[in-house]
Structures are given as C-alpha cells and as structure tokens.
Design a protein around this nucleic acid. Structure first.
Lengths: 203, 203
DNA sequence: TATTTTTAATGAACACTGTTTATTAAATTC
DNA sequence: GAATTTAATAAACAGTGTTCATTAAAAATA
C-alpha cells in the first residue's frame, strides 16, 4: 500500500518538477519558443520521459494556463479589501490592464493562445478562472444594487465589460494599434478606458 | 530597358503565384499548419525558391494579412450604401461579428496572430486597415453630429467600440467563453452586443 | 558570334521540432 | 532468488524554417 502511495507522490513531484522547469523557461523565452527537449535538458531527463507524465505539449500548456490563473487571482487579492463595489470595479479594470502590461506572457497563455485549450478534456473545471469571473459578476451585481450601474442582466454586463477590457488589452499586446503614433497610443488607451467607465455608469 | 521590365513583371507574377498557393493552402489547413515545403510543392518549385521572393515565412503572412484586409473591406462594401450613420454603425458591428464567424481564419491573421507583424518594416502603410478604421471613425463622428451618440472624442469612442467588438469576437474564437454552457453562449453574445449598443446611444 | 557576366533555381545540408517505440535497467512482488 | 511490473532512455520517424554552394539559363559585352 505505502509503495503505491510513494509512487503517486513521486509521480506528482516529477510532474511539478517538469512544470516548474517549463514555467521558468517559458517566462524567459516565450511560450511557443520552448521545446520539449529544452524542458528535458533543464530537468536532466530524456525528452521521452516527459511523455510519461504529460500526454503532449498542449497538456503542459494547459497546466501552465491553470497556474497563470492562480497567479492572476493572487495579483488581484487586494481587490477583496475594497468595500465600495464601484471603486472595486474600476480598480479591477485598472489591474486587468496592469496585469497585461506587466505579465504579457501570462496574459497570452490565459486568453490568447490556442494550445492550452486544444485538448478535448479541457472542458473540465477551470476553477480559478471561474472564480475570477464570478468575482466580476458579483461586483457588477453589487454595483447595480447600490445604484452605481444601470439595472441590466448582471451576467451580460459582466461579459460586456470583460469583452471591452480584453479587446483593448489584446489589441495592444498583439500590436494592432499602430494606426496611432506610439506617443499617443497610451493616451488613447487611457482615454478609452475612462470613456468606457463613464458609459457604464448610471447617468 | 524592356528586359528589366519583363523581369520585374515576372518577379511580380511569381510572387503572386506563391501568395495564391499559400492563400489556398492556408484556407484549407489553417495558417500555422502550412509549411514552406507545402507551398513549394503546390507551385512545383523547390522550397529554396520561395526565399528568392520572400524574406521569410512572416513576410508571406504579412502579405496575406494585407489581402485579408482587402477582403474584409469588400465584405463590408454594402455598408457604404447605408445613409443613416447610426444604422450603419450598428450594421457595422453586426457584420464584424458575421465576418469573424464566417471567416475565422481571416479574422485570426488580421487581429490575433503575431507572425504577420513580426518584421520591423511592417510599420509601413497598412492602407486597407487604415481605410476600414477611418470609416468607423467617420461613422462615429456622423453619429455624434446627428445626435445619435453622446459627444466625445470620436477617435476615442471609435477605439472603444472596436475594442469591445474585438474583445467579444476573440473570446469566442479562442474558446474563452466555456463558463457559459454552449446553448446559451450565443444568446449571451447577442445580448451583450445589444447592451453595448444601448450603452453608447444617447439617453 | 563567342565569351563573359548576371540572374534564377535547386539539392543538400544544418539545426531544429513533437512524438513513438523497442530496449534496457531498476524496483517491487511473488 | 526468480518473475513481474515499472521507469527511463536511445534511436528513429516525419516533419520544420532557413542557408549556401553549385548548376543551368539568360543577358550583356567584346
């Protein structure tokens, strides 16, 4: 019995050893640029060994996708201390943009890359992502209850807000805002955010 | 003199032959999945020949990126016949989503892929994209002038609208809306669009 | 026209990639 | 101690983007 237990533990340790190395390499080189052979070299095992612990490269991406959401929730931990729901909502948007700017590689794997969600079974939990999203939904609902936002389906409004935030962030990250000269690009982005905030606000 | 002219013409013909083949292959297989060797085989030349006409694979992606924008402008041609600027703006949004749904591969290369804009010199014109964007800006301006939209910086509002549209579209295309069960996903998307439209409208 | 120069096209190679499989070595069970 | 299960790997498969020396053809010059 205890043999099986140790084996399971060792299997888990090996998995997180692979993931840790992959994680570090990915942060240095960018996700697509790291190969299975790179990871194998870093942990001093052969490439084939990786396949005893992960089905394929996408499964590694999926695991790191989940880790990125954990990191994102940590990054946003201080939002929970903001009592006023409207202040919290605005701060949430600001932090979303901050996260994109400070951690573009995480943003990329969380919201832009295809790889992490390319395996069928990825329909499963995605707990941390759901947590973040329902936090947004609850905040929106509270904003309506306190009269900050016009009454509407809070789920629909939450999706609309997220869509806007993700839209502007991914345009920036993927270099699709070159029609604006570099100097004014950031100003445009800020003004757009302010405009959007004023648009959802009651009155 | 005329020799050089013929040579230039032949060079151009070869370039568009490569591009045409690449285009067809990409539409069948998806962009990342087509190799230089695939293209070479299709045009019955050796892979090395491609490099006499294009610096690298990204340059091919860049050319197709431009073609996609031409196609997008064609797709939207009938918007010009809509006289009422607000009707035109709404229709513009609807067609944007239609385009994403009917031509996800074009949408991908236009707005999501990194490759087409990875070479330095891509800062150049991007004429067709600028055309589409300034059409949006002008429509927004006209909507303000006719009292449909609240007065604001029309460039900032145009960017905000595009950000929202791109946001919802890329969340769909990249499968990031799995927190909603498949049946209601499309409904959420439609309701969100309607909500956004009502948000930007005066009153 | 004959020879030199320029240009176009390629085969072969380089240094990679993800993934599979047969084989070996070690650990565990009988 | 022998048989069995498990873990790890070397080697191979079938690709990838890209470069470069070499060849074949076309154009320019003598």
């Amino acid at each position: 019995m205890s043999v099986k237990e140790r084996r399971d533990r060792e299997k888990g340790e090996m998995k997180s050893m692979i993931l840790d190395s992959a994680h570090k390499l990915f942060l240095n080189k960018g996700f697509e640029e790291v190969s299975i052979r790179n990871i194998a070299e870093a942990i001093e095992y052969s490439p084939a060994t990786i396949y005893l612990y992960f089905k394929d490269k996408n499964e590694i991406f999926h695991a790191l996708h989940q880790e990125a959401f954990r990191f994102y929730n940590q990054f946003n931990a201080d939002l929970f201390t903001i009592k006023d729901p409207y202040d919290r909502l605005v701060k949430m948007g600001e932090k979303y943009m901050e996260f994109m700017e400070q951690h573009p590689k995480y943003y990329n794997i969380m919201f832009l890359m295809e790889a992490p969600l390319q395996n069928e079974e990825c329909i499963d939990e995605w707990e941390e992502g759901a947590k973040a999203h329902s936090f947004l939904e609850q905040t929106v609902l509270q904003c309506m209850d306190t009269g900050y936002l016009k009454r509407a389906d809070h789920q629909v409004l939450a999706l609309t807000i997220w869509s806007y935030m993700h839209g502007i962030c991914s345009l920036i990250i993927r270099n699709r805002m070159k029609m604006y000269p570099e100097e004014i690009r950031i100003k445009m982005q800020q003004q757009s955010f302010e405009l959007f905030i004023s648009m959802i606000k009651k009155q």
